[in-house]
Simulated scan of single mutants.
Amino acid sequence: MRDADFTEADLRGTDLGTADLRQTRMTGAPAGEHTRWPAGFDHAAAGVVVTEDPGPEPSPLLQPPGITTRHPPSRSMP
């Protein structure tokens, strides 16, 4: 991930503990208490904004419909 651009990317809950973050841009990227950083990495100096984690993602209320339309099998033209 060296020299990557994480500007304003949502890093909350991300495990970056083994990533090479040298020269990585993170200005305005939100991160929370569950975000893991490499040893010695100063995320505040990189421009990360510390915020609360949103918690687990809720399950969808409605499941997507299945395809129920029946079509005749495909055939090749002679």
Rank of each mutant, 00 (worst) to 15 (best):
G55I: 10
R36K: 11
A31K: 02
Q23R: 11
V48F: 01
L11Q: 02
D3Q: 08
A4F: 03
L11G: 04
L62K: 12
P54T: 03
P54W: 13
H71R: 13
G32T: 05
L61H: 14
S74M: 14
G47D: 05
A4Y: 06
R2Q: 14
M1P: 12
V48K: 00
S59M: 00
E33M: 04
S74T: 14
G32F: 12
T69A: 14
L16P: 01
V48T: 10
E8D: 14
G55D: 05
D5I: 05
R12D: 02
G17T: 04
V48R: 08
P64N: 02
S59N: 03
G40Y: 05
H43F: 13
V50Q: 15
E57C: 07
G17S: 15
D20H: 05
M26N: 02
G47L: 06
G32Q: 11
R75P: 06
D42F: 05
T69C: 14
R2A: 10
A44K: 15
H34V: 10
M77A: 13
V49I: 14
A9D: 02
P78L: 12
E57V: 13
P65G: 12
T24I: 01
V49M: 06
G66H: 11
W37A: 02
P56G: 09
A19H: 03
P30Q: 11
R70C: 10
G66D: 11
S59C: 11
T18Q: 14
S74N: 12
P56S: 12
R75D: 07
L16H: 00
H43E: 14
V48P: 08
A31W: 00
A31M: 10
L61S: 06
A31G: 09
L61P: 06
H71Y: 10
D10V: 03
T27L: 07
G40W: 00
P65N: 07
T24V: 12
L16D: 01
V48M: 08
E33A: 15
S74A: 15
H34P: 04
R70M: 05
V48W: 02
F41R: 08
P78I: 06
H43C: 04
A39R: 04
P64I: 00
Q23P: 04
Q23I: 06
L61C: 05
D15Y: 07
P58R: 13
G17I: 12
A9F: 02
V48N: 00
S76T: 11
T51V: 15
T68G: 12
R75G: 11
M1G: 10
P73N: 03
P30D: 10
E57R: 12
A4Q: 03
H43Q: 13
L61E: 15
W37L: 01
